[in-house]
Design a binder for these strands. Structure first.
Lengths: 271, 271
DNA sequence: TTGCTCCTCACGTCACGTGAGGTGGC
DNA sequence: TTGCTCCTCACGTCACGTGAGGTGGC
């Protein structure tokens, strides 16, 4: 039997937290002096405290931790709660990544505006699973692809809305076909889980050359030309590319932010 | 000039939020009726609202948004704030990923306990940058590697503490050397940024066979044997492997959770 | 007797959601 | 006159941190 200060030290928590857990009934001291209210804990209660901390560390609320601590939670029930938690965390991670992408795009925009920088950046992108639809376009020009992309997104949005899936960054990918000037267009949203009516496709991890465009889509050719110029001067031939619509809300396109990514074929390096 | 309800609809926010932004001085209506207090907004104020929403969407607090909205923020200052934000988001993503790993490990533990499942799972792991140190061990046995790993971790922790870098999952990687039974051991923590005195090394993305161990390290051989048995039966030769110490706090190892990952050489597939 | 630990309120945090209770405009 | 929108409080959210003000134990 130790007092609250000692128990807190042993458990690596604050005394305030222990009083809080007591108040919530999560971890009641083994004994309370009826005269002065002082709490005494059994050292064996450290096990409970550790489980409490572990569950809290998995991101459960104290309410949920309480439910889990009370004996009688069947493994299947715990399993269900953990699956929910995992799904939440996946959503959270995707959301934060999306925000991070947007913050980084804005950083690069500022750098472009203040200095005459090489706007092009090469980077590695991780594999990306998107719920998407595909269709061919006659050629790689914006005149040809624009309508195709728009139609695809409208269809994708319809499907996702009826499935109440949450959307993050819209992404389009353009792949040259064997059929001369025609390109295959894929458009969709990064997602976890599945959406009925949409196929999930995983865009491969790859090295890309990336540039940020700011403004309406009808002025994006500047960025494309810069990217094409870069590709030419570095000996790459433009091929498959992607568009990440990082800020693209509403019809007013004047503040749209779009990242163009040119996929660079792996130079069959070490790997 | 529109009333608050109309302005809220146009901006896609709640009237409550508009009143809140008014109270905080972030977005004051163009006019307020002195008699009945009704707010009127200028449609041109939608620009401000949109900027406010955009900044909030990047994760800035309303206080910070306020500072950014007041004119006179220089690009360099905004740049600084965005860099801070990006760093925060990276930390957040790493933290949530770590939590997700732990939740998933517990899920697999429950599955192992309830059913006699194949405990081994193959999966793709993304490239992982860790602040780490390396040293050779005489052979791959735990007797040889154990002391090396422990010494490495102690040194890494010392360096990171003096740099006040925050640690997440401890990770060890074992790579066979040309020098017969000896293996190279690398131990460290996933991290962003750099730590003086520690080299950053990026573990490659790869397919792995993974198994979860629960309990003290002196009982981990069961898991190793299962993994070795699996490798043998599927035609893989055990080679490079990793240990993720998902739950490993304090000296009491009885609740440790460790994920073993056997790297599978890429079968030179499509990519 | 002096520190030290312990106690119980109770406010503050962050960005609103959600009523309660009431009033002016079409 | 009836809905409809608007108004201003003010509580609730979540897990504590942080004093304030006071008391018992070594």
């Amino acid at each position: 039997m130790v007092n609250i200060g000692e128990f807190a030290r042993l458990g690596g928590v604050s005394t305030r937290m222990l009083r809080h857990y007591d108040a919530l009934g999560l971890l009641v001291p083994a004994d309370v002096d009826p005269h002065n209210g002082r709490r005494s804990y059994d050292v064996a209660q450290l096990t409970v405290l550790n489980r409490l901390i572990a569950l809290k560390g998995l991101g459960f609320s104290l309410d949920e931790v309480g439910a889990l601590l009370r004996e009688g939670v069947e493994p299947t029930e715990l399993h269900g709660m953990l699956r929910l938690r995992a799904a939440e965390l996946e959503r959270q991670v995707r959301h934060d990544r999306h925000t991070l992408d947007r913050v980084q795009a804005r950083l690069r925009l500022i750098e472009q505006e203040t200095q005459v920088n090489p706007h092009i950046q090469t980077k590695y992108v991780e594999p990306l699973t998107i719920a998407a639809l595909s269709a061919p376009a006659a050629d790689a020009s914006r005149q040809s692809t624009g309508a195709v992309v728009q139609a695809l997104f409208e269809e994708v949005i319809t499907q996702m809305e009826s499935a109440t899936a949450d959307r993050t960054t819209p992404i389009a990918r353009y792949v040259p076909t064997a059929d001369a000037p025609a390109v295959d267009v894929t458009a969709g949203y990064a997602i976890a889980g599945t959406v009925p009516g949409l196929s999930l496709c995983t865009l491969p991890a790859t090295e890309v050359a990336s540039i940020i465009h700011h403004g309406p889509m009808n002025t994006i050719s500047t960025a494309y030309q810069a990217l094409a110029h870069w590709a030419e001067s570095t000996g790459h031939s433009p091929a498959t590319w992607r568009e990440h619509y990082l800020e693209a809300n509403g019809e007013d396109q004047s503040n749209w932010i779009v990242e163009l990514q040119l996929e660079l074929p792996s130079t069959s390096s070490t790997r």
